[in-house]
């Protein structure tokens, strides 16, 4: 230890060790208590597979939705100046800190059958979002999009504007500049944002269960299945949790150079 000279500062070391144990022990417990022998069999149960499939599909669609809407939004925040831009930026990041359940309630009030927009959707198209798979996507996108917007906006602000000027002198319109110069230059930032967004969508619980409910095969994603299984089949809950843990670790490893590398 570098602190070998002088007295060990126990007041710092003890809480640090407790904190580390607090973070690591639950994960270790998950690994220790996992029913390793019956794992393959558990994993191939139709209910587990269904929840897994639904989670992957909805998280991926939600990520695409976030990319389509969030990248232009990030561009607007990073590259243009208009009155209220700072306020808009603050509003966009609200879902980052908002309890997801509140997000779900808010979505219900707006997109629910009797909601402000939902009412109109229902009467005009006979189409309603709550308690459908599409509703799951909406809930996940609502919670996850700020992660993407923040990551892409940061990348756009860090990008060298002079390349965009060079493109303009070559006759490129603003959209062409964005498509052929800006976007390729910030691609690593967009990718990192998308992965973060996807991970957030995959783990979404509160907004989903509030807005989309908990119907197996339709709206019951992995986190919902874990919660439900815990009451009836604890072993199944552990197995599902292990899958989510594995996904988290894979994402962390995949992005380690981008985040942990910068901090180290």
């Amino acid at each position: 230890m570098k602190l070998s000279r002088g007295r060990v500062p126990w007041l710092l070391v003890v809480p640090a060790v407790v904190g580390m144990a607090f973070l690591v022990l639950p994960l270790a417990g998950l690994l220790i208590r996992a029913p390793w022998s019956t794992l393959p069999q558990r994993l191939s149960e139709p209910q587990v597979l269904e929840a897994l499939r639904l989670s992957l599909v909805t998280a991926s669609i939600a990520t695409v939705v976030c990319l389509v809407l969030g990248v232009p939004l990030a561009w607007l925040l990073a590259r243009t100046d208009f009155p209220g831009r700072r306020l808009l930026r603050a509003l966009v990041t609200v879902p980052l800190v908002l309890p997801p359940v509140v997000g779900g309630v808010a979505l219900l009030l707006v997109l629910g059958r009797r909601g402000l927009v939902g009412q109109w959707l229902e009467s005009a198209f006979g189409f309603s979002l709550p308690f459908t798979t599409a509703g799951v996507v909406v809930a996940e996108a609502f919670v996850a999009m700020p992660f993407l917007v923040i990551a892409v906006e940061g990348a756009l602000r860090a990008a060298d504007l002079r390349y965009e000027e060079a493109a303009a002198t070559l006759g490129a319109s603003r959209f062409t500049v964005f498509r052929r110069v800006t976007l390729p230059l910030v691609a690593p930032g967009v990718l990192a944002g998308a992965v973060l967004c996807w991970a957030r969508a995959l783990g979404e619980f509160g907004a989903t269960i509030t807005f989309a409910g908990n119907f197996p095969g339709r709206t019951q994603t992995m986190p919902l299945a874990v919660y439900l299984a815990l009451e009836t089949e604890p072993e199944a809950a552990i197995v599902l949790s292990l899958v989510l843990l594995a996904v988290s670790v894979v994402i962390l490893v995949g992005l380690r150079d981008r985040w942990l590398g910068a901090a180290a």
């Binding site: 000027e165 060079a166 303009a168 002198t169 070559l170 006759g171 490129a172 319109s173």
Partner: peptide, 9 residues
Amino acid sequence: PAERRPIGV
């Protein structure tokens, strides 16, 4: 605007 000027830089 720059993109509509007959220039090379």
